[in-house]
Write a protein that binds this DNA or RNA. Structure first.
Lengths: 193, 193
DNA sequence: CATAGTGATGACACGACATGTCATCACTTA
DNA sequence: TAAGTGATGACATGTCGTGTCATCACTATG
């Protein structure tokens, strides 16, 4: 059809994940990735700003989606309920779009490399900023919006982690519910069990 | 006294902060830093693992200090009270050890550069892990310890940010108190004001 | 049908980052 | 006095990331 094989981005992502899993992130060079994908080094950096980004494709749209979801949710919902009712369904859709096997292998690679872990933290920080703006739009003052956003991200991230820790059983919605319940318990009583 | 000027690390840190503020992090090269400090490039990397680390010196001891403080605090304290009574004094001492001017200039540099912002996030993540272990040692289950640690870090980080936003007036203890109060308000009512 | 335009890739050069290795020199210890 | 220690200088090297221009398939336009 074209001069080049289609799906350049996808081939690079797959080749990179494989190589990172096989021999580690640091030990894998960009030329190795592009060789496996049948491309040149320069082309890799046309699709990804740096070597890490190949594992974070598509996540630049998350903040925008968060903003949309928050604008669409009923204004009466508090932070916790907003997560449970407004955000959780979209999260489930987002994460269950990828196979569990992919998510687990990706996480193993990220956990093995501090540089990738940092990039993962930035992802959540960007989501937090989007949530903060959403809460501000709902009338919260600066401090409250900031804290509500952090609480929400903590709940979501902890739930996803917990869900993956247990290899996807039970489902993500259950993990979210469980996490929110524990959070409520913790903040209401103010002391440890 | 010796063949070399004393205070190698400190000279590198000061030269780097100056240059980052003057011309930006990316635009500053390691040879420029070492030239200003009167050293060679190779020596820079003997003291700091990479170019970013020159702004995060001494922070590798924070997790250990957190562990010590938590072990020393009364076991009866819940997460929030532990921050207010057990951690806050040490925090104040830690931050007020550096001049406010230094902290503000350092923050300006970090905020201007995503790569440095990521490193800053990692710093808080390491503190969170230390807090989590501390809560586990106090008898909390995995999920509760994780959430309590995240809540604590959120409170501390938000308070420090707020304190610096207002150029150090009023003091850090007031910012902590204010943040904890807002957090309590938020989690107790469960809805935005 | 022809020709110019568009967009992705290949090819090449290059500066900065980061590390391995060995030499050098002041200071310490026996 | 001589060996040992520790920090630094000097040099080489590999990978990362970017700038630049050429190439080729596809598309639009006349």
């Amino acid at each position: 059809m074209s001069r080049w094989q289609p799906g350049t981005r996808e081939r690079l992502e797959q080749a990179a994940l494989e190589l990172f899993a096989e021999q580690g992130f640091t030990e894998t060079t960009v030329p190795q990735i592009t060789a496996r994908a049948g491309l040149t080094t320069r082309t890799f950096f046309r699709h990804f700003a740096d070597k890490r980004e190949v594992l974070f494709s598509g996540e630049e749209s998350v903040p925008g989606q968060v903003a949309r979801l928050m604008a669409a949710a009923p204004p009466s919902l508090g932070p916790m309920d907003l997560i449970a009712e407004g955000l959780a369904p979209a999260l489930v859709e987002l994460f269950e779009g990828r196979s569990l096997d992919y998510l687990l292998r990706r996480r193993a690679v990220i956990d093995a490399e501090p540089a990738l872990h940092e990039r993962e933290l930035r992802k959540w920080a960007l989501m937090s900023e989007a949530l903060e703006q959403g809460f501000r739009d709902r009338g919260a003052d600066q401090l409250t919006a900031r804290l509500a956003a952090e609480l929400a991200v903590t709940a979501i991230r902890t739930a996803v982690t917990r869900w993956l820790d247990r290899d996807g059983e039970p489902g993500l919605p259950e993990a979210i519910e469980e996490t929110l319940a524990a959070m409520k318990r913790l903040t209401v009583t103010g002391s440890l069990p």
